[in-house]
């Protein structure tokens, strides 16, 4: 009796879990490299920030200045991920300021 009860419970939950299994094709063995976490991308972002600041009619806000400076420093010290994140935020702020004007 217990075996049957347990089997029915397992079967029921297995069905439920099967319905919710991720629906993608199985992953491959060799991972594809993402290039937006590299120091090159960090420099690319820094160039973009500098370009926008340079072309802007008004000086950037202190927050943008701080973020870009921190990003540049972190990228230079090998903390690429953190640096990229700050430079991205600086870029988003600059774009939003541009859109505001």
């Amino acid at each position: 009796m217990a075996v049957t009860a347990s089997t029915s419970v397992l079967a029921g939950l297995a069905c439920c879990l099967a319905l919710t299994v991720p629906f993608g094709v199985p992953a491959q063995d060799a991972p594809e490299r993402v290039t937006s976490d590299t120091p090159e991308f960090c420099l690319h972002l820094l160039d973009q920030v500098s370009s926008i600041v340079r072309d802007a009619t008004a000086p950037p806000s202190a927050e943008v200045t701080n973020l870009s400076a921190e990003g540049q420093k972190m990228c230079a010290h090998g903390q690429t991920k953190g640096g990229i994140m700050r430079l991205r935020r600086a870029l988003v702020l600059l774009r939003s300021q541009d859109a505001g004007r």
């Binding site: 991720p22 629906f23 993608g24 094709v25 199985p26 992953a27 491959q28 063995d29 060799a30 991972p31 594809e32 490299r33 993402v34 976490d37 590299t38 690429t80 991920k81």
Partner: peptide, 10 residues
């Protein structure tokens, strides 16, 4: 289709 993809980030 939606694919699962193994990627390498840093």
């Amino acid at each position: 289709p939606l694919y699962e993809l193994d990627v390498s980030r840093a």
